[in-house]
Design a protein around this nucleic acid. Sequence first.
DNA 1: TAATAAATTTAGGTAAACCTAACATATAAG
DNA 2: CTTATATGTTAGGTTTACCTAAATTTATTA
Lengths: 153, 153
Amino acid sequence: MLKMEELSKTEETYLERIYDLTKEKGYANVVDIAMALNVKPPSVTEMLQKLEKHNLVNYERYRGVTLTKKGEVLAKSLEQFHGTLRRFFEILGVDKTIADEDACEIEHSIHHETIEKLTKFLKFIQESPKHPKWLEHFRYYEKTGRYRCRETE
Amino acid sequence: MLKMEELSKTEETYLERIYDLTKEKGYANVVDIAMALNVKPPSVTEMLQKLEKHNLVNYERYRGVTLTKKGEVLAKSLEQFHGTLRRFFEILGVDKTIADEDACEIEHSIHHETIEKLTKFLKFIQESPKHPKWLEHFRYYEKTGRYRCRETE
DNA sequence: TAATAAATTTAGGTAAACCTAACATATAAG
DNA sequence: CTTATATGTTAGGTTTACCTAAATTTATTA
């Protein structure tokens, strides 16, 4: 699997934004990255230089940025896990905006093993033949604190 | 609910360690906190001064530390959520050590709403009359990628 | 009780990630 | 094609959380 240990959480966050912008426009520019991350342009420039050192972006002063192959692979796997987390929180009934924010926070701080188990768990509950009923039961429990069906086993 | 927004993640982490040590020995001292958090004593002293400013600990130079009421209430709720997260990861099949580390990382970075939903979800799956069977099915799915029972609904 | 050892604090320094203000380059408009 | 505006970069500064080395205080023990 990918070695992400060497990247800081912040680097990963920038990488994802660059990936998103690149998907939209074919490249990413400083102002847009800054807006997306709620920071000022000089912070972006600084980070781009660091990302380039790590061979994650192709960066030319005063020109836009694109991801290297390595950067893209990493960004994709980050985004995939971000999605997993977000969907999981939404299933739990967390508000969409908050689910997204929390996914964003968490995706950079947990072990790969946990990511994998969570992904499998989400697939399990989403693809389960019992999925719709099961979810209804949870929603009911969530509101009332009681189990809808009492039959055991 | 508690306003945690004003505390940094690091402050919360120290608070929890102090809480643990206090439960064990009645108070916490600098060396033990430093060991538990894998930092050097001067970092602890610095943080204790900060925690005192926030009225979370009773701190006297060269003497030990104890939590204030405010600090204790906060530490308790942090620890409770830590436990919830850890148990959840363990249910998913994550290794105990990793589950604990990840719980520790996450507990300081997500919204209260998410914490609450997760807690309810954990109660739901743990107290469910179907709990043991349900878990078996997940473990089976986790290993084989297939659902054990095929009956729908 | 004086001397040594252990624990704690202070002083001063580093790295990451941010900022503002000033400067440089690129783009667009006259 | 030159100037005005956009965008991007550099220089230098801040904050947080860490560090080492050098005091200082407390505890131990000879």
